[in-house]
């Protein structure tokens, strides 16, 4: 069988990629498509969130989604006030543009943007450093792209917190059960000494529901499959300019922000 140069190079390239993937798999698990942001090799399902900041105008808009999350997940919100702010636990919260996008902030942005609050949560990265560093696989990535934390396996070493470039992870420095406004029996409370974070409402997804924050967002947060070109998230991304946090780090966040122009100034 003869083989022309082009075919040979193609094969050699493929073999090289294969070799690279198989060896890198041992050390760098969790980064199947590490080098491209929307690779052809993308998984069948990759769940993602598009946050349309134009839809968040009043304090109430933020509070509704944050409370929805924290109340159903038994997040100990009273720690900051009754214990010590340094021991805070939070899954979704708001902060300024400058703090949300420190590498992309500019003195000459519109005042309204500089003053606007952004919602922060776990990015469920496609190439998550927290998963890479966890010594017990307590944090792992599911096939649908969700980055999940098993609080029963976590040894509390906090390597994932050092690894996360987004400050998305909280450690239970104190007993979280002492700082709950009220306990929702439908969701487990956590113990002291483990790490936790947003799960994209994995427990609700299992029941066919969407994330609680998205449900309360009046269309400001849209959840869906990034791999499906007909999904609502893809349509939003195709028709709006959206950015992600710290894109240069190669973590490939699954949370997108539509910043909008003057019209978001509310």
């Amino acid at each position: 069988m003869s083989i022309d140069r082009r075919k040979f190079l193609k094969l050699a390239g493929l073999a090289g990629v294969g070799l690279g993937l198989s060896t890198s798999d041992l050390l760098f698990k969790g980064d199947a498509v590490a080098s491209s942001s929307h690779s052809k090799a993308m998984a069948k399902e990759r769940l993602a969130m598009v946050i349309d900041m134009r839809k968040f105008r009043t304090e109430e808009d933020y509070k509704r989604v944050i409370d929805a999350c924290h109340s159903i997940h038994n997040v100990p919100t009273l720690i900051a006030e009754k214990n010590n702010p340094k021991n805070e636990v939070k899954w979704i919260w708001k902060d300024s543009y400058e703090h949300t996008f420190p590498d992309q902030s500019d003195d000459f942005h519109p005042e309204a943007l500089k003053e606007k609050s952004f919602l922060l949560l776990c990015n469920h990265c496609d190439n998550p450093p927290c998963v890479r560093v966890c010594p017990t696989k307590a944090t792992f990535k599911r096939e649908d792209g969700l980055v999940i934390q098993d609080p029963h396996r976590c040894i509390g070493c906090r390597f994932c917190m050092a690894g996360c470039p987004y400050g998305s992870r909280s450690f239970n420095w104190v007993d979280p059960r002492l700082y709950l406004e009220k306990t929702d029996p439908a969701y487990p409370t956590r113990t002291m000494g483990v790490v936790e974070k947003c799960t994209f409402c994995v427990e609700r997804l299992a029941k066919g529901l969407g994330p609680a924050c998205a449900e309360q967002s009046n269309g400001g947060m849209v959840f869906g499959n990034l791999s499906d070109p007909n999904s609502e998230v893809r349509k939003l991304l195709a028709s709006n300019y959206a950015i992600r946090r710290k894109p240069s780090l190669g973590t490939l966040p699954s949370v997108f922000y539509i910043i909008g122009g003057d019209e978001n100034a509310g």
Partner: peptide, 18 residues
């Protein structure tokens, strides 16, 4: 460690990428 009683998890669930 936050959960020192679980330290053997490092051996029970060996994770070479960590």
């Amino acid at each position: 460690m936050g959960q020192p009683m679980r330290m053997l998890n490092v051996i029970l669930h060996p994770t070479p990428n960590s």
